[in-house]
């Protein structure tokens, strides 16, 4: 469904993404992991058609992201990593605007989504907290019941209860056969929903594997404190079996 093929965007100074290749199957939830600045958002911006690659290409449902973005967007829901909303509108006005602008006729679904996230959107967007804006972003991404969802760090700013609501929503959509690409910088955030996970570091894809395999291979780190330097030296000479 989503195909990324040797995608390269070089911003210089080792920044950007380099020769990225992976795909997301129809009906799959794909977790896209990496530290801040690794290139997750850059990859997603290519998928959205906001920027164009230096080399390689990417496509969604067989349509090239650079040239057919409007067609792709008909069936795509997007949640940006940084939600920038107009500051001269109330949340409700904005949701009405986005619905009309997209040609969404099913307002009931918008109301369902708002109820689900306990979103009272009557206030001015300018005065909304990060979490509130995040909820508006969720409603915008899901309101037109798209087949493909691209979610850039969707749970940042949400409280744990809302994070759970969000995970439930993702699982429901997955059950309906939706294809979902979700980025995060924490493994735990995607392990409950994702089938497979791709890890990106400094613009290079490190690994793509199933959640189960990654969990098994997960490294655990422990910090051991010693009472004195002597004990620590003794410990360092010990041959450790692990």
């Amino acid at each position: 469904m989503i195909k990324i093929n040797h995608l390269t965007k070089d911003y210089g100074q080792q920044r950007g993404i380099f020769d990225l290749t992976f795909d997301v199957q129809r009906g799959e939830v794909f977790g896209f992991l990496g530290p801040n600045g690794a290139g997750k958002t850059t990859t997603i911006r290519h998928l959205m058609g906001f920027i164009h690659p230096n080399a390689g290409n990417c496509s969604i449902n067989g349509l090239d992201c650079g040239t057919h973005s409007a067609e792709i967007q008909r069936n795509l829901g997007y949640m940006p990593g940084e939600i920038a909303l107009p500051d001269d509108m109330t949340g409700l006005e904005f949701l009405h605007f986005v619905a009309d602008y997209r040609g969404v006729t099913d307002w009931a679904r918008v109301e369902q989504l708002m109820a689900r996230f306990e979103l009272d959107a009557r206030g001015n967007l300018k005065r909304m907290s990060k979490g509130m804006k995040q909820k508006i972003g969720i409603v915008c991404a899901f309101m037109h019941d798209p087949q493909v969802l691209i979610l850039d760090e969707p749970t940042s700013g949400l409280d744990p209860l809302m994070q759970n609501h969000f995970i439930d929503l993702v699982l429901e959509e997955k059950a309906k056969g939706k294809t979902i690409l979700m980025s995060s910088h924490i493994f735990e955030e995607v392990e409950r929903t994702a089938d497979r996970v791709g890890i990106i570091r400094e613009g290079h894809l490190v690994t793509v594997d199933s959640v189960a395999a990654l969990k098994a291979a997960q490294r655990k780190r422990y910090t051991v404190s010693f009472a004195s330097e002597k004990e620590a030296q003794a410990f360092s000479k010990e041959s450790l079996d692990y």
């Binding site: 959205m48 058609g49 906001f50 973005s69 409007a70 067609e71 967007q73 008909r74 795509l76 997007y78 940006p80 940084e82 920038a84 909303l85 107009p86 986005v98 602008y101 997209r102 040609g103 915008c140």
Partner: peptide, 15 residues
């Protein structure tokens, strides 16, 4: 600059 162009382009409307 503000980023609200995101919502205008994340839609079936071409640039």
């Amino acid at each position: 600059d503000h980023g609200s162009m995101t919502y205008l382009l994340a839609s079936p409307n071409t640039r």
